[in-house]
């Protein structure tokens, strides 16, 4: 390594990974239902897609976490987006493709993708 640019490139590559271990809980929480019902309905690829894309895009205020069964098993896989000061948004019947849409529209631009939310069913 001979230049500051090279150092910066490594730093940016690693920042997402190390920043992942941030203790703050003031950002957006994306919660994926990962009980037996969720996993059976395909929640795992949804969870990994969300987690990968959030890190790829460097959305350091967003945390993708798992939770257990919330009781709406027939709507699984369920993803909830919880933002401080805003009403919780619940997305149902998620797939990896829909998850990518939610990241691009909801998490990046702040537009709720209402066609996938629970109240539309």
């Amino acid at each position: 390594m001979k230049s500051l640019e090279e150092l910066k490139a490594i730093r940016e590559k690693m920042q997402g990974q190390v920043g992942f271990r941030d203790e703050g809980d003031d950002g957006i929480r994306v919660v994926v239902g990962m009980a037996t019902c969720g996993i059976a309905a395909g929640a795992r690829p949804v969870l990994t897609t969300l987690s990968d894309k959030v890190q790829e895009k460097g959305l350091d205020k967003v945390k993708v976490v798992q939770t257990g069964c919330i009781g709406l098993c027939k709507y699984e896989p369920i993803v909830e987006v919880i933002e401080p000061g805003k009403e919780k948004v619940t997305y149902v019947h998620m797939t990896p493709d829909k998850a990518i849409e939610i990241i691009d529209k909801h998490l990046v631009r702040g537009q709720v993708v209402s066609e996938y939310t629970l109240d539309m069913k």
């Binding site: 500051l4 490594i10 690693m14």
Partner: peptide, 13 residues
């Protein structure tokens, strides 16, 4: 690289 990720070696640079 994890050290560099937390601004390591930036001071040296």
């Amino acid at each position: 690289e994890e050290y560099i990720g937390t601004r390591g070696y930036e001071a040296l640079g």
